[in-house]
Design a protein around this nucleic acid. Sequence first.
RNA 1: GCGCGCGUAGCUCAGCGGUAGAGCACUACCUUGACAUGGUAGGGGUCACAGGUUCGAUCCCUGUCGCGCGCACCA
Length: 925
Amino acid sequence: MDKTYAPSSIEQRLYQQWEAAGWFAPSGQGKPYCIMIPPPNVTGTLHMGHAFQHTLMDALTRFHRMEGDNTLWQPGTDHAGIATQMVVERQLNAAGTNRRDIGREEFLKRVWEWKEQSGDTISRQMRRLGNSVDWTRDRFTMDAGLSEAVTEVFVSLFEQGLIYRGKRLVNWDPVLHTALSDLEVLAEPEKGSLWHFRYPLADGSGQLVVATTRPETMFGDTAVAVHPEDERYRHLIGQQIRLPLTDRLIPIIGDDYVDREFGTGCVKITPGHDFNDYEIGKRHQLPLINILDASAVLNDAVPAAYRGLDRVAARKRVILDLEALGLVDKIDPHTLPVPRGDRSGAVLEPWLTDQWYVRIAPLAAPAIKAVEDGRIRFVPDNWSKTYYQWMNNIQDWCISRQLWWGHRVPAWYDNDGNAYVARTLADAQSQARGKQGKEVALTQDDDVLDTWFSSALWPFSTLGWPEQTPALKTFYPTNVLVTGFDIIFFWVARMIMMGLKFTDEVPFREVYITGLIRDENGDKMSKSKGNIIDPLDLIDGIELEALVAKRTSGMMQPHLKERIEKATRKQFPQGIPAYGTDAVRFTFAALATMGRDIRFDLGRVEGYRNFCNKLWNAARFVLMNTEGQDCGTGGPVELSTPDRWIRARLGATVEEVRGRFAEYRFDLAAQSLYEFAWYEYCDWYLELTKPVMLSDSYSAAQKRGARQTLVQVLETYLRLLHPLMPFVTEEIWQAVAPLAGRSGPTIMLQAYPARADFPADAEAELAIGPIKAAVLAPRQIRGQLDVPQSRKVPLFMKTASAADRAVVDANAELIRSVASVSEITLITDEATLPLVSMTIVEGRTFYVPLATLIDDVDAELARIAKRKARTAQELAKCEAKLANPNFAANAPAEVVAQERGRIADFRSELAQLEEQAARVTSLRG
RNA sequence: GCGCGCGUAGCUCAGCGGUAGAGCACUACCUUGACAUGGUAGGGGUCACAGGUUCGAUCCCUGUCGCGCGCACCA
C-alpha cells in the first residue's frame, strides 16, 4: 500500500472490477430485498440531492447484499417531458428553427438523439459514486415495456371510468402552450394593484364599485356578485349592470362566496378565467366567455379595439379607457399570489380546454388506508401527516400535456369527434367500426401524458408488468423507497395509488424521507442561484476558473452572472480540492439526520477525507506488523487485556451500527464507525500493540494474539464500514483479509459482521480502566505543564484496589512504554514521595516528581487550583441535589447511590488536591 | 387560516428525565519508526424565552418570540 491515501488511484479501477464481475446483480438466493431508484431526468445530471440519496440507497443495498439477501437496486431514468422538450426547443431556437417548422416526427428524432448524447452522464456519475445498481436491468420510462404499461394502465382506468376527458378550466401555460397539474403551479405573493371600477346599473339609477386584480378579464365578466345578506347591496340582486367598454348587460347575483369585508364587497364574475368564478358560474348558470387564445392574447370575443393585445397590454388599455370614462374609482396597492408554471416561470391562465383527467378519489381511499393500517410506513413518521393532508383534499389529476415528448394519449378520434380509447390503433378501429357501422378514418390524440403518470408505475413497470415476470414476483412489493419530501405528492402518493390499483399490493413497505441538501447558507441549491456543486467536483476536485465557468455557463438569466462569479471566487478561492468518493459518501451519511434541511459543509468532507487517510495508515501499520508473520496459525495464541478489550468494543460497535442501519440513522451509524476506528482502534489499541510488536519481552503466543487481533478487528471493521465507504474498504480488505483467514474475490459479497463474532467481555472492559488511566495521567500532567510528551518520567500510582494492582503489575511494561514512563510504582501512601505533581484520573491518583518536569513550582500550584475550583463546583451541585429531602425520598435508589458515590469521590479528590497544594507550598520554601 | 420542522460551543450538527457531546475553528506543546490529511493537553455553552409537571427539565406539557417549509387562500 502507498504511504498516502489516494482515492483517485483506486476507486474507478475497483468499480470496473465489480461491474465486470456482475456482482451488482441479485444473487438469486436468499430473502428478496429491493430498492427502486427514483428515476432522475435522463438528460439531466445528478445534483447533490441525488448523490446524497444514492449514497443511502447504496449503503442499504450493500448492507443487504452482505447479509445474503437476494438484493436488487433497480436503476433507471425518466423522460421528464417538459424539461427535456424545453432543452431541445432551445437548441432548435439557437439553430434558427423551431419544433413547429420541423414537425413532430423530426422533433422526436432530435429528442432521442439528445437523449442518446446526454443520457450516459447520469450513469457515469453513478458509477463514480460507487452505486451498486444492477445495470443490466437499467430502465427508461419511454422504453417499449414501460410504455406498454402506461397504455395498459390508461386504457384500464378509462374502461373502469377512472379516466375521463372533460372541458374544464385548467392551469394553462401560455408560453409552453400546455396544461399543467395543480402540483406544477407555484403561487408566490407578488406586488400588484387592486383596481376599483364603477360598473353602472343598467337602469341608470347608480353604480356598483367592483374591485379586481385583473382588469383585462372584464371582457369575460358575466355577472357581478354580492353577498346575499349584505345590507348595502342585497336589494340590487336581480338587477342588471351595463358592462363598460362593451354593450353587454350582466346580472347582479347573490352568492355567499363573496367576502363582505374585502374590497367593496362587489365581485366581478369571470367564469372563463378564474377557478372560483367558474364554480359560481356553474351555480348560477352563467354563460362562460373565453377571451384569450393559447398565448393569452385577447381573441375575437372582445371588442375590436382590444383584439390581438396580450394580457399586459390589454390591462393597460382597459385602465386607460376606463379612466377616460371616469369609471376608475381608485387603485390600491395589493399583494396577491400569482400562479406561475414551475418550469417556464410564466404567469398561468385558468383556461377552458379539453383535457384528460384521472378520477382520483377512488384511488386515494385505499392509498390512505395503506398508510393508516401500517402496510406502508413513513420514516420519519410525521411525514405521514403531510401525506394524509394532501390525500384527503386531493383533486382530480389532469394528466394530458400539450407536448410532443412523452407517452401519447392512447385515444383516437373519428371525424365526428367521437373518442376511442384503446390499446392499439386496430382496437380503436374496431371500436369505431362498431359505433359507425363502417370503416372510418381515425386520428390519434395529439397530447402526451404527464411524466409523473409513467413514474407512478415505476415500481412494477420496471419489473416487467403487465407481464407476470419472475422479477415482479420476487421483488414486488419493494422494501423501501428513499426520496425527498418535495416529491411526496408528485410521486410517492401516486405510486401508492397506482400500485394498489394494479397489483393489489403496496409498491414499497417503507418510505424513508430524506432532508434536502442546501448550501452552507441554508439556501436551496439551484442553477439560477449559482450555488450548485457537482458531486463529481467534490470527488475529483476542480480549479476555481473551471468552477466559475461551470456555474455561469448556459444561464437562463445572464444578468446574475457577475454576482455568482464573485460569490464563487470568495467561497472557493482555491477551487475545490479532491476528496474522493468515500469521503463524500461518508459525509452524506453523517449528515443524514432526521431533520428536513441539511446544510452541506465542506469542512465535514475534509474531516472525513482525513478519516479515510487515518484508516489507510492504520491499515499500513497493521500490514507492516503482520504481513509475512504468524497471525495466529503457527502455535498457541494468548490474548492480552487490550486484545480482549478491543474485540469486545468491536462487538459493541457491530451491534450499534446494525441497529442504526435498521432505523435509517445513517448519521449515528457513521458516528459509531468513526469513533470506533479513530478513538478506540487507532488511539488506543494500535498504541497498546506497538510495544508488543517491537519488544522481545513478549512471548510468541502474546505476539500471535496481538497480530491476530490486529488483523481480525481490522478485517471485520472493514466489512462493517463497507456499505458507507465501498472503495477504501475494498482496497484495504484485499490486502488484509488473507491475514485474517478470510478469502474471497471481493468484500462486497462477504458476510456483514455479526455481534456474536465478538461477544462482550466484562472482565477485559474493566481491566482496561487502570491501564488507560496510567497512560492518561502522565500525559495530563505533562500537557498541563507544557512539557513535551516525549519526556520520560517516573510515575507513582496510589491505589488500594487489589484488582487495579494486579492489572498494573501484569501490564507494567506496556504502560511504561505507551505512557513514556521510566518506572511505574504502586503506592498506598504518598507521604514519602519527593515534591510531586499530582493528578486524578477516573478516581485513581497519580504522582510524577516535579523535578523531572519543571523548575517552576507555581505552575503546579496553578494547575491544582484550577482543578480544585472545578471539582468544588461539581461537588456543590451534587450536595445541593442531595440536600433536597425529596430527592432521597423519591429518586430511584441507584440514582441516589450514584449521587452519594460522586459526592464521596469529589470530597476525596478535593481533600487530596488541598493536601497537594499544601505540600507543594510548604516544600517550596 | 390549517399542518409540519427548527432554535444546544464561533460555525455545522448529534444527544438526553439524573456529570452537556462530536467535527471544524481556536490556544499551548510535540517533526515519538501508521498517519502533520497527524499526536497530546486545553479554552469555550443560563441547551431561544416564560410558565407548568417532576425529587430533578436542555429533554415531557403549555404559551411566547425568532427562522423555515408545505397546503389552502378574499376578487
